[in-house]
Design a protein around this nucleic acid. Structure first.
Length: 586
DNA sequence: AGAGGTCGCGCC
DNA sequence: AGGGCGCGACCTCT
């Protein structure tokens, strides 16, 4: 089922942007940038050299002429996080790009491009991990084969054998895609990954609107006024005092896990760790004040005043988003824990005057993705209702919505025991095709094999699992070796089982955002994507077009489903809310 | 003093 | 429970 996937666009112009890597860093504006325009076959059409200071104007010009002809170019560069921020700061937001480093990483590992020259070549500069500070801030260590004099004219971009040469790399990538058994899937994946890199750069630039006063209000309400010096807030101090009294340890520091654990055990509290669940289960008089302390201490240290001072500037929280850092294809973030923004502080995410936040999240995304990728008609039918979990209840698969949720998540995460594990036979009976997809992925992982997402992103090779398995099967293997191999196989099987679903959900989400971004660009008033959380987006928009933005978000979800799964009957409904602050969304 | 490891908990 | 993360606090080692 590939009818939605893009065919090669032979009319698309690719414009490489490369740094010549010359000039002293203190004269950054004068550093040379080389632009090379090619067709999708990699044949060179035009090249020019500009200074870094001239780049944004040059890119903006080419982008406009492309847009007028209805064919914006695709900008090709080593690393979006190195080029896009300056362009965005200069007011230039390109329509599309191709991030060589992110795409290289996908093609290097993908089962769909395994026989390509790119995949079989030894590791080189393009295998360096993307998004690391050394890569994004330093000069990319590429041998571009460029004459160091930007006005000298001589240029050796076609010099063979230069492993770091961006044009050669682009050609290798295009060849890997064209030579793949599933070029449409890879093409979509690379385009989506690259669009994600653009979005990440734009979201960092735009930032999440953050109301520092509201944040201070809710912190003060929970913790007491902001303390001076290194002291704890009043409410935390009170709770600490209660804990000390109950445990009869006047000098206890409740922030120290070993100290706290010793004190709890000395007081006869039956815990083996300081985990919240154990403390709650103990039902001891210390439980209530200690649990309250832990909750507030977390808020204070992770998202308190100090956090705001470090990460919020001029009313915006600007974390760094790092596409491609999570093996499954999900984004990671760095700086301020953007992807763990707790519910307790979301009231501080407030639209600016005259604006609204459009908050949208995909309902039960992972189960729906599983239904689509497996072509499981029964599961698709259960997902016809807006709430897939309720759909399972209505179909008579399980008795309650809670059971449905546990069972589905258990199937996707690899539960073996407990409520989730117990319900698996019911799911297997009701949705054999869907369960077959995850169980085959699990078995492959247990054997130490790789698995791939719908679009071809492939799990990292795991030699350890395979080696342990081999050792355990060898003549004379002892029980300990067998136990170790089995344990490792089970762990890796759970990982690969989850990989195919989480990774495909990440692909859907990338397509969703890319489709949304394109729609937002066509709207007036500059509505901006300002937050992304795996299956959820926030758009900051002028109030007057908020309803059009909400429509665009829904249309983009439908488009994402079509792009990935063609005519699959699986729907991807959203919960959409137009609100003034994030906490108002359900 | 600083690096690195572990725990625990926030998000999906 | 089971998958994927980032981060802060504490602790240990160097």
């Amino acid at each position: 089922m590939t009818e939605g996937l893009p065919a090669r666009d032979d009319g698309e112009a690719l414009v490489l942007v490369m740094e010549a890597g010359i000039g002293a860093p203190e004269h950054d504006d004068e550093r040379a940038v080389v632009l090379v325009e090619t067709g999708p076959d990699g044949a060179q059409r035009m090249r020019r050299v500009v200074t870094r200071a001239e780049l944004a104007a040059e890119v903006g010009r080419r982008e406009r002429t492309g847009a007028e002809e209805g064919r914006p170019p695709r900008w090709v560069w080593a690393d979006t996080s190195r080029w896009a921020p300056d362009l965005i700061a200069a007011g230039v937001r390109v329509e599309r790009c191709h991030d060589l480093r992110l795409c290289h990483r996908i093609l290097r590992a993908s089962v769909l491009s395994a026989t390509s020259e790119l995949a079989r070549a030894p590791r080189g500069p393009w295998d360096e991990s993307p998004g690391t500070p050394a890569v994004t801030q330093g000069v990319v260590p590429l041998d571009l084969g460029i004459d160091p004099d930007p006005h000298g004219g001589a240029w050796a971009g076609d010099a063979p054998g230069a492993a770091g040469d961006a044009l050669s790399e682009l050609r290798r990538q295009l060849a890997a895609v064209d030579g793949s058994a599933e070029p449409g899937r890879l093409r979509l994946l690379l385009a989506a990954e690259s669009a994600g890199a653009l979005i990440a750069a734009e979201m960092h630039h735009d930032g999440l609107p953050w109301d520092v006063e509201e944040h201070d209000r809710l912190l003060t309400e929970a913790l007491g006024p902001r303390p001076s010096g290194g002291r704890r807030p009043a409410r935390l101090e009170e709770l600490a005092a209660q804990v000390r009294t109950v445990l009869d340890r006047p000098d206890l520091n409740p922030d120290s896990q070993p100290e706290l654990l010793r004190a709890l055990r000395a007081a006869g509290v039956p815990v083996t760790s300081t985990r919240t669940a154990e403390i709650r289960a103990a039902g001891h008089p210390v439980s209530a004040p200690l649990l309250a302390y832990k909750k507030l201490a977390r808020l204070y240290s992770a998202n308190g005043w100090h956090w705001a001072q470090a990460w919020v500037r001029e009313g915006r929280f600007r974390p760094e988003y790092v596409p491609g850092r999570v093996v499954t294809g999900r984004w990671a973030s760095s700086g301020g824990g953007a992807l763990q923004l707790p519910a307790a502080v979301r009231a501080a995410v407030r639209a600016e005057p005259g604006h609204r936040l459009v908050v949208a999240d995909a309902a039960q995304l992972e189960p729906r993705v599983l239904a689509a990728m497996s072509g499981d008609a029964a599961m698709a039918a259960a997902g016809r209702s807006a709430d897939l979990y309720q759909g399972l209840v209505d179909a008579g698969v399980v008795a309650t919505r809670t059971e449905a949720k546990y069972a589905m998540l258990g199937a996707i995460y690899g539960a073996t025991t407990g409520a989730g594990g117990a319900l698996l036979p019911r799911l297997r009976q009701a949705f054999p095709a869907a369960m077959d997809v995850v169980e085959r992925a699990a078995r492959a992982g247990e054997r130490g094999e790789v698995v791939a997402t719908w679009l071809g992103r492939t799990s990292p090779a795991d030699e350890v699992t395979a080696a342990l398995r081999h050792a355990a099967r060898a003549e004379g293997a002892d029980a300990e070796q067998v136990r170790l191999a089995r344990r490792r196989a089970q762990d890796h099987g759970r990982f690969t089982r989850n990989f195919v679903v989480q990774g495909t959900a990440a692909e859907w989400a990338l397509c969703w955002m890319a489709a949304l971004r394109r729609r937002l660009r066509a709207l007036p008033g500059e509505p901006r994507l300002v937050f992304f959380l795996h299956d959820e987006v926030l758009v900051h928009t002028p109030t007057g077009i908020a309803s059009r933005v909400a429509e665009a978000v829904v249309e983009a979800a439908t488009e994402a489903g079509r792009l990935l799964f063609g005519s699959s009957p699986v729907e991807f409904p959203l919960d959409v809310a137009v609100v003034e602050s994030y906490d108002e969304a359900a």
